[in-house]
Write a protein that binds this DNA or RNA. Structure first.
Length: 420
DNA sequence: TCTGGGGTCCTAGGACCC
DNA sequence: TCTGGGGTCCTAGGACCC
């Protein structure tokens, strides 16, 4: 039918591990994993690492010493590098259609003409592989939820492209019948357990439920999933991403901190990252929230979780007032006798960044300083400048541990790959 | 015995995603 | 010794108003 369109999902295979391989051809067939911040646990695994049995989220200390994981190559995560590759992939996709929705760092949804979807998908896959160096899989279907299913099939069968929009109803039913509810996009652990109590364990059973009943018994979100599985598109392509509503920066610290000064330093440093992100998104915040925590249940010692929120006098994206406010909140929350392992700073209630001179703010001065900070950071890296102890190249004891970091090949002049 | 009803706004918490 | 970080949306329930 002319003019008819379908959804496609382009998804990079083992994104982080694949990016690391672009600069390390020697790792092309090795079991590669990428570790979370502080080198805590595996957040990405190459096909070979999955085959060896490395679990998603498995702690590194459990992997490191096991003989069966002897050949695993572990790298610290390098998000600046992955973000850069994400943009490159998107640029290739946009050569084919403007109807693109970036969904995550390694995925985007597309609208493609029904008749040519398979052909375009194959071309995309080939170009992203050749020009960017990343392997992708593409799923095609009449709804986003089914396109997710199609991508899963493309990955497991190794075909690279799978089109469910041309599949017969009988075959589609067979596919959904063998798909557990937990593996459906939007159905997590809790919902699949509740559904199982109703006797619903497969995608085919879920698709056959009465949407009205699902809405009453569950939520509108689950109702949409049911309709999408049955072939009715409920989730449109979000071509222009909605503006950010909140920004947060939280980390496990490389080492626990105990002093009031250290806690304030961490909060100040995190607030500076938030300010930079706000300016990049052209947003300003009305409300700043800081929290301190001694960490999860597996830590011994006295535990404390505290949180404080402050409404600002005027919305701002300026580094100085945000850092100052965050440090003040952190000092207020601090109490002696605790080992703080996690600190978070969150900017809430975001609005468009329109700087108006206010009674209590100094936009001109703050703007000039912010522009300078952004420029220095862009040129010399994030740790080149900052307020207080942030930005000192001599890293603070609480800073992230990243002992296996690959160079920032594409985002730092001083770390470009060298060809001999 | 009887104890309105509907609307809005806000917040906390649950659930999901990658 | 060692267990991630960053988001979104929805619902329920309370406060408040008329």
């Amino acid at each position: 039918m002319p003019g008819e369109q379908v959804y496609a999902l382009v998804d990079v295979d083992s994104m982080y591990a694949s990016v690391e391989r672009v600069f390390r051809p020697d790792l092309r067939t090795a079991p590669v994993i990428v570790l979370s911040n502080n080198d805590g646990c595996a957040v990405a695994r190459s096909r070979e690492a999955k085959a060896l049995g490395v679990g998603m989220g498995q702690p590194w200390f459990q992997i490191r010493d096991r003989p069966k994981f002897r050949t695993v190559v572990a790298l610290s995560s390098n998000f600046a590098l992955y973000g850069d590759f994400s943009a490159r992939m998107l640029a290739v996709v946009e050569r084919h259609t403007p109807l693109v929705e970036p969904y995550s760092i390694d995925e985007c949804f597309l609208r493609l003409p029904a008749g040519r979807a398979g052909e375009i998908a194959a071309a995309l896959r080939e170009q992203i592989g050749r020009w960017v160096g990343l392997p992708v899989s593409v799923g095609i279907a009449g709804t986003k939820t089914l396109a997710k299913v199609a991508t899963k099939i493309a990955k497991t069968t190794g075909t690279g492209v799978h089109d469910l929009s041309t599949t017969s109803p009988t075959t589609l039913h067979e596919i959904l019948d063998s798909l557990p509810t937990k593996e459906i996009w939007g159905i997590g652990g809790r919902l699949s357990a509740r559904l199982a109590a109703h006797g619903v364990t497969t995608a085919a059973q879920l698709a056959a439920l009465d949407p009205g009943w699902v809405r009453r018994s569950y939520t509108i979100v689950v109702e949409r999933t049911v309709r999408e599985l049955a072939g009715t598109a409920c989730l449109p392509l979000e071509h222009t991403p909605p503006p950010r509503r909140q920004l947060l920066h939280c980390r496990m610290l490389g080492q626990p901190v105990t002093s009031e000064t250290d806690v304030a330093d961490v909060a100040s440093s995190y607030a500076q990252s938030i300010a930079t992100k706000l300016r990049r998104h052209q947003r300003a915040t009305n409300t700043l929230c800081v929290w301190l925590s001694t960490g999860g249940d597996f830590y011994t010692g006295p535990s404390r979780n505290a949180q404080a929120t402050q409404t600002l006098l005027a919305p701002t994206s300026a580094t100085v007032p945000l850092a100052r406010t965050a440090a003040r909140l952190a000092r207020r929350l601090w109490q002696p006798g605790y080992q703080y392992r996690r600190v978070g700073v969150m900017a809430l209630d975001l609005v468009p960044d329109q700087r108006h001179p206010g009674l209590w703010t100094h936009p001109a001065r703050d703007d000039a300083l912010a522009a300078t900070l952004d420029a220095v950071t862009a040129r010399f890296g994030r740790d080149a400048i900052g307020l207080g102890r942030a930005g000192i190249r001599q890293r603070a004891a609480w800073a992230m541990r990243q002992q296996r970091l690959s160079p920032a090949y594409t985002t730092r002049w001083d770390q470009l790959a060298t060809v001999r």
